[in-house]
Simulated assay, not measured.
Amino acid sequence: MDSLVLNAPAKINLALQVQKLREDGFHELKMIMQSISLADKIKLSKSSEGISLSSSSNELPLDNSNLAFKAAESFFSANQVEGGVEIYLEKNIPIAAGLAGGSADAAAVMRGLYKLFELEEQTAKVKSLLAQLGSDIPYCLHGGTVYATGRGEVLEQLPELDKKHLLVVTPAVKLATPTVYKQYDNLAAESEFNFEAILKNLKFEEKVNWSLDYKNDLQPAAESLCPQIKEVEELLKESGAEFTLLSGSGPSVFAVYPLAKQAEQAAKNWPRKTDFITAAETIPSY
């Protein structure tokens, strides 16, 4: 095999609770993470030596500050293989948007390199390598519906959701995750979450009960930095969404609709012309 193409799906957070600040400077978290059909596309091609990276986006760094590049470096450091790789990223996921686009790319590159060089993917080893690059990258290795704790790297697979029809809206503002967490600390809000009820709902009940604590503790902080988030959420509710929530540290907001055609119609009629907007759906693990 000389080359392959694979998807790097985005993720949304169905719930995100921020807990105590750890000694390493990160917060303890409880999250429900979910893969969606919005995805970057990645092509990997064998080369004689080294790592090269190119992209459809001119906003991405193409050196070893890029997570996809770092994932390739980690792969070659951990495995005795000859040759190198050329990586091409077709960017479809908005950057710095709370959708884990960079993390998804890194995980897909790692997953793809094991296939390209025909090595057995030892999941625990690979997740350990990815955890050194970023907290949510191990999740992006195989996605699905997952309960994540720690910094986001301790993962428990949950039963797959029935397909949910979504609209994802990203205002034309970039929010850096550390900035949002710093604002969260500045606001000194106390989290009130019944996570056990959420887990019980997802593990044992047929339908998602959106009236439970499916919420995001980072939302007030993100809204204070990007007031457009509130306007987006109000418009989504007016369009007939049954549930809306900020994803990750934002500014992306997603909405759940009973039918795919409702999400598609809301996208077609969306009034804010500078937003990124796409209809999508939840997907199982991959």
Rank of each mutant, 00 (worst) to 15 (best):
L113I: 03
F204C: 12
V168A: 03
T145A: 03
H27E: 04
S47Q: 00
L21T: 07
T123M: 09
P258N: 14
P271G: 02
L167E: 06
M110L: 12
M1H: 05
F117A: 05
K125G: 13
S249R: 03
E49D: 11
K268Y: 15
P251F: 09
M33T: 02
G112K: 00
Q157P: 07
E231K: 15
V208K: 05
E49P: 00
Y181N: 03
E196Y: 14
E23D: 09
L133Y: 00
S74Q: 10
E121Y: 07
E205G: 01
Q80V: 05
K261T: 15
A15P: 04
Q122F: 14
L236G: 10
I42W: 07
N13D: 03
R272E: 03
F243Q: 12
E242S: 15
E120D: 15
S56N: 01
K215C: 11
K30F: 03
V85Y: 00
L119D: 08
P284D: 00
L245Q: 15
H142V: 12
S249G: 04
N186M: 14
D63C: 11
L113C: 04
T274I: 12
E121S: 12
L235W: 14
A279L: 10
L6C: 09
A10M: 04
A260R: 15
Q122L: 14
G150Y: 04
P94C: 11
K207C: 05
S74D: 02
L89F: 08
L99V: 10
G250R: 12
D40V: 01
A8F: 09
E49S: 11
K163A: 07
G150W: 05
S74Y: 07
S103G: 06
G98F: 05
E196M: 14
Q219P: 14
E264T: 08
N269S: 14
L218H: 03
Y139I: 08
K70W: 05
D162M: 12
N186Q: 13
K203L: 13
G83K: 06
R111M: 01
I283G: 05
Y184T: 09
V173K: 15
Y257D: 13
S247L: 08
A189S: 13
Q228D: 09
V85W: 01
A10H: 02
A172V: 04
K237E: 12
K20T: 15
G250P: 15
V256P: 13
S35Q: 02
E264P: 02
E86P: 00
E121D: 08
L38T: 06
T123R: 13
E233D: 07
L14S: 07
A267G: 09
M110G: 02
I12S: 09
V180F: 00
K215S: 14
N209T: 08
S252D: 06
K215F: 09
D213F: 00
V253D: 06
A260W: 14
G150L: 01
K200T: 09
L6Y: 11
L89V: 07
R22I: 08
L113R: 03
P178R: 00
R151P: 13
M31A: 06
A104G: 07
E238H: 11
L129S: 10
A131M: 13
F76P: 02
S135Q: 06
L187G: 08
A104R: 02
A100T: 04
L235Q: 15
K41N: 13
S77F: 04
